[in-house]
Design a protein around this nucleic acid. Structure first.
Lengths: 331, 331
DNA sequence: CACCTTATTGCAACCGCTTAAGAAAGTAAG
DNA sequence: CTTACTTTCTTAAGCGGTTGCAATAAGGTG
């Protein structure tokens, strides 16, 4: 059997309450007994049972990270950020995804909260709806959403509009005027914001926004890029540059297909992606893209949620992080 | 306050013990009370407090996944496999990494086990030593190691030797006789196994093994590949093919640098990687490589550990998965 | 009708730790 | 030498479930 407070207490000739206070560094314990207890605890190789402690303190000391799908490089990178923060975090990370489950994000959250499984939640999702986020807000367990802006809940996100605007600015400065924009219909709010940034840039440069320069793709994979290439060429042969808020993988598909069709990049076609995934550096020509500070987002998220859990922060907090355009060869 | 068993019991006019038995689907409860209790539980939106339950049952219903570093695509992919198994897993996944902590994998495991935090552990690491694995074996909490073979502990791994042998066979069949081998000194046992496979293939084809065709790199990043290129060219100008057990990123670096130095791939130099990461498909020419079934490994691991926890399996089990050579353009 | 089963529910201890309140002993003050 | 604090430790009541055993009532048997 595992050694418990009682075991230590017996050997030390005190009560388990006293041992508990020693273990937790509470005041009002004499130096003598404190030392004796600690010595015995070490001898017996004592570890507190966190479950029992959790029941008594009504804390689980763990935070849940809810993601729609772990098979997203963005999500994984944010997760890495969460795990690699410099701060010494006394919380365990429990990982939940909702793909293939019969619960959506908010239902899952509600259950976790009521089951007292977790003290706080980080939701990494750009597609979650406002109504769902309201459920998060209404639960008594603190939560925070990463990857989309939200008025009613703490959030960490990037300035998508500015990122898209910068990217488009860059293409315009390179002399392009017919700039296609490839968006994903699976990205939720950020898609809209990035499209707004694209429009903003055009408008700043007195260029007209043309609805039929906007192309939509179904997912953010490489095949979407391959597929959308023909659509762009057919519908808009005059296009000389493509901005791809749908993501780097789509941009890479586009580049690959363009090269196959004997277009030179960036001379005939300039391409700018969004996110800056590892493959962006690998593709040839390497991909100019808008980098999202994913590690930093995770870092902020974990720090904010811990502050919230421990009552150091109240009220709704937001952290908007800047994007950065990474110039490579494709534009 | 949250609703408890007692709340339900009061309204139902029974004892909380009875409610508990209903909730847990125990026998010896009349249909009438069962129905009544369930109805009230639903009305009150009852969720059992998993911490309290855990204390009583001495189970946490969660399994720990320990990884040395989450910033590894291999690890992440296995993790995805763990999370996406078809089986309905009643365990929560808690994620731990040891990079930047002052505990190594086995110390962490020992603590988690003693603190009763987890019912079982999946360790994803190829570099863990035999001595460390012995600590895992000696603890009473079931555990399993993914990514390396181990006699003393359940394990899930690929047949590295066969994978490397296949890759080398392939190069030899293409007519290559001077085949360099680039290994990582950060991969532990698999490095040795892959090197053995390489030797085996040479031997099978009556080619001599030459020690100085083996090159070592410090990490598995793209820069290692760039760096090792010159070493190979200097020391072994006659090399016409490179097998890179050190991993795809190294192989990609090698390709990029080779192209920069005006070598044609695969005509002048053939390159074969190991692992099959997403970027392998993106690089130009695309990378021929040995695929490791990472999702499947995760799948097996979670199933094995759950069986072990629930006592359906005993004794040491191993699962060896085959690799598969993915032919692309680089060889 | 007395006696024995069987089905169902209640009782109470327990899981291991925390914590508010109280008690004992020492100490300073009047 | 009381009285009133302090300091240090103990008591005991939880936290919210689970579970072995006792108890009760209903039904069956001779």
């Amino acid at each position: 059997m595992a050694v418990t407070l009682k075991d230590i207490a017996e050997r030390a000739g005190v009560t388990s309450a006293t041992v508990s206070m020693v273990i937790n560094n509470k005041p009002n314990i004499s130096d003598a007994t404190r030392k004796k207890v600690l010595k015995i605890a070490k001898e017996l190789n004592y570890y507190p049972n966190v479950i029992a402690r959790g029941l008594a303190t009504r804390k689980s000391n763990s935070i849940g990270v809810i993601v729609p799908n772990l098979a997203s490089s963005f999500v994984v990178r944010v997760l890495q950020g969460i795990k690699s923060t410099n701060r010494d975090i006394d919380y365990t990370v429990q990982l939940f995804d909702t793909v293939g489950q019969n619960e959506n994000e908010s239902q899952l959250f509600q259950r976790l909260a009521r089951e007292r499984r977790i003290d706080g939640v980080i939701l990494i999702s750009s597609t979650v709806t406002d109504e769902e986020l309201n459920i998060f807000r209404d639960e008594s367990v603190p939560s925070i959403v990463v990857a989309r802006k939200c008025d009613s809940l703490d959030s960490v996100y990037v300035n998508n509009e500015m990122g898209a605007c910068d990217a488009t600015d860059y293409l315009i400065e390179k002399g392009h005027t017919q700039i296609a924009c490839v968006i994903s219909n699976k990205l939720g709010l950020p898609t809209k914001e990035r499209l707004d940034g694209y429009k903003q840039s055009l408008s700043n440069h007195n260029l007209p926004f043309q609805e039929d320069l906007v192309f939509e793709v179904e997912d953010d994979g490489i095949t979407s890029g391959v597929e959308v290439f023909s659509r762009i060429r057919e519908r808009q042969p005059a296009v000389s540059a493509v901005f791809v808020p749908a993501g780097d993988m789509v941009a890479i598909g586009l580049i690959k297909e363009a090269k196959k069709r004997e277009l030179r990049i960036p001379q005939d076609w300039a391409v700018v992606g969004f996110d800056d995934i590892p493959a962006a550096e690998v593709v040839e020509p390497s991909l100019t893209t808008v980098r999202q500070p994913k590690l930093e987002m995770g870092d902020y998220a974990i720090n904010m949620i811990v502050d919230k859990i421990e009552g150091r922060e109240s009220g709704i907090k937001h952290k908007e992080l800047p994007t950065k355009i990474i110039i490579r060869e494709s534009a």
